[in-house]
């Protein structure tokens, strides 16, 4: 199935969790925050949150800011 990840269309496995999606994208050790369809998903819930077709996923990392 297809989802959008940081604005790009990506194919992910059916019924994958967010943690699995992050792992497959190479984010397994990364310090990132995730939102799905403009709602924040707590890091503690990534392993129990299933991705659905068409989900709009944002993956954000710390960055310098003023």
């Amino acid at each position: 199935m297809y989802v959008r990840i940081n604005g790009e269309s990506r194919q992910v496995e059916e019924s994958a969790t967010l943690q699995q999606v992050l792992f497959n994208l190479g984010y397994q050790e990364s310090f990132v925050a995730v939102a799905v369809n403009k709602s924040c998903i707590k890091r503690s819930d990534l392993a129990v949150t299933q991705v659905k077709a068409g989900d709009d996923i944002e993956i954000l990392a710390p960055m310098a800011g003023g």
């Binding site: 990364s30 990132v32 944002e58 954000l60 990392a61 710390p62 960055m63 800011g65």
Partner: peptide, 9 residues
Amino acid sequence: TVSLRRETA
């Protein structure tokens, strides 16, 4: 202050 930004693979 810090920020959050998209991070590409």
